[in-house]
Nucleic acid binder design. Structure first.
Length: 495
RNA sequence: GCGUGCGUAGCUCAGUGGUAGAGCACACGACUUUUAAUCGUGGUGUCGCGGGUUCAAUCCCCGCCGCACGCACCA
């Protein structure tokens, strides 16, 4: 007989004794959360005040006519001491049918055991929920990475402190991000996830079909083009905490669905947005986690402002030893790259080659480049939505913030010249025709919006999952996403 | 997508070409202040799935599935 069958039978025996293993309500009601009761331990125990605590039974030591156990609620853990003489024959018999994992309510008074543990001395207890499965072994935890992600509830139970603290941090960070933007009079908005055209980033989309409209649609790869339509409409500062979907590979820093913060500000340019990014990240870190220094593996990352700012050109020159401005065409740049024995895809355009040099830079820069850094002034090739920098031909007003070696934010002065935007889309379409299936598609409604007039504006996209990774020392994005995308496995029958 | 590694009890892990083990958990018993409680007794199983080699496969080979890591792609 399996553990599950044993527990189902126990539930049946409880029912036969008139006890519902899944009661709709219980009396008396919970009086305190566990930490709440512990905070008031002195007073409550002195007066032997009756308190009722609830939680999942996570350990248990049977001592004949008495039982010690620990119960855990959403906030803390406490030991319960239940003697037959205190709770009575009937309830003690019920207690004998309870298992690790069951939720119970316990009423009694707080006291300190002779070994010094603050505990709850039960005078009555009741079953709230019967558990039909064994909990993972308490001392080993749940280590299997696959099980941890597929059955996150088990992960949360077994590795409670570590796992819960990461996700609590995540929520606090995102709350702090909202607080920061709200305080600057940014308006949080929602834009379509289901889109007739996808744009705002270079990525492959997930496509789907709307039956009633008989139309193919896409899950958004970015909210960008909608948010900027709102600038056209007259909102000056908008942001969205946007779940995006990109039909691409999965690795330690990529999940097919991920959360991106985008915010746009009229009358600002990318230099203003640099300040915003620094301020936002440091505010969120300080507010949510109370510090600006963070462990990242063996290194301490320091978010203290100001962050290092360097042009992409200078950074690549410093760390890779190539000044790409000296190689203005694709062939000469590829030539020097090959001479330096840097491995790149030889079929790339010049912009892509520079992008690869940027990656090479982070490999070469080592731990120095784990610190926050802002790289600015990018080649125009890869930035179809970015305003050109008038002083430097071939360059756009764009920056990327990197943290812990990951690209954290990308930002630019938003292109608002409809003709220029049209030409860039055309250019993208040409690249698409050449087989680049990630180039952006012509969005003529967006062009029309720009024709109506979008004020000059700066915009930022920040990968919030990655921000959380950096601030919680998690090296894999799946550790900061509660239910990361998994491959399908055949469903177990009878589960 | 490619390469490497891994997949054994509920959990954490050993192990072997001769039909599978430990600790925890679990079952039964003892114990009314224990806390990795203790003591006694007893099981745990499609050894990821499918095929092949072999007298015999959990082990060797092939394919598949899943996961991890690296590369590619991307944020």
């Amino acid at each position: 007989m399996s553990e599950r069958e044993i527990r189902i039978e126990k539930a049946q025996r409880l029912r036969e004794q008139g006890i519902d293993p899944y009661p709709a309500r219980f009396q008396p009601e919970r009086t305190h959360t566990i930490p709440n009761a512990m905070e008031q331990f002195e007073t409550l125990s002195e007066n032997k005040t009756t308190v009722t605590l609830t939680g999942r039974m996570v350990s248990r030591r049977d001592m004949g006519k008495a039982v010690f156990m620990h119960i855990e609620d959403g906030y803390g853990k406490v030991q319960v001491y239940a003697r037959r003489d205190d709770i009575g024959e009937e309830q003690f018999a019920v207690l004998k049918l309870l298992d690790l994992g069951d939720f119970i309510a316990v009423s009694g008074y707080l006291f300190t055991t002779k070994t010094g543990e603050k505990s709850l001395h039960a005078h009555s207890l009741s079953l709230l929920t019967k558990s039909l499965h064994q909990l993972p072994a308490k001392h080993e935890g749940l280590k299997d990475a696959e099980l941890r992600q597929r059955k996150r509830y088990l992960d949360l139970i077994a590795n409670r402190d570590e796992v819960m603290s990461v996700f609590i941090a995540r929520t606090r960070i995102i709350s702090a991000v909202r607080e920061f933007l709200d305080s600057l009079n940014y308006l949080e908005v929602e834009t379509p996830i289901l889109q007739p055209l996808y744009g705002g980033a270079t990525a492959k989309p997930f496509s789907t079909h709307h039956n009633a409209l008989d139309r193919d649609m896409f899950l958004r790869i970015a909210p960008e083009l909608y948010l900027k339509r709102l600038l056209v409409g007259g909102f000056e500062r908008v942001y969205e905490v946007a779940r995006n979907f990109r039909n691409e590979g999965i690795d330690r820093s990529h999940n097919p669905e991920f959360t991106m913060l985008e915010f746009y500000e009229a009358y600002a340019d990318y230099t203003v947005m640099m300040q915003r990014v620094e301020d936002l990240v440091t505010f969120a870190a300080q507010k949510a986690l109370g510090k600006l220094q963070f462990e990242w593996g063996d290194v301490t990352i320091d978010l203290t402002k100001p962050w290092r700012r360097i042009t992409l050109r200078d950074a690549i020159l410093q760390y890779v030893g190539i000044d790409y401005d000296e190689y203005p065409d694709r062939e000469s740049l590829l030539n020097i790259i090959n001479k330096k024995k840097i491995h790149v895809d030889p079929n790339r355009g010049r912009g892509r080659l520079i992008d690869e040099l940027k990656d090479e830079m982070f490999r070469a820069g080592g731990i120095e480049l784990l610190q926050p850094i802002i790289l600015y002034d990018f080649p125009v090739d890869l930035s179809p939505l970015t305003k050109k920098k008038p002083e430097v031909p071939g360059t756009v007003e764009r920056f990327q913030a990197h943290l812990a070696g990951m690209q954290l934010a990308t930002s630019f002065s938003e292109l608002n010249d409809p003709q220029d935007q049209f030409d860039r889309f055309e250019d993208q379409a040409a690249q698409r025709a050449l087989g680049d299936d990630e180039s952006q598609t012509m969005d003529s409604d967006y062009i029309e919006a720009l024709e109506v007039g979008m004020p000059p504006a700066g915009g930022v996209g920040i990968g919030l999952d990655r921000l959380v990774m950096a601030l919680t020392n998690q090296q894999n994005i799946r550790e900061v996403i509660l239910f990361p995308t998994m491959r399908a496995i055949e469903q177990q029958e009878n589960m």
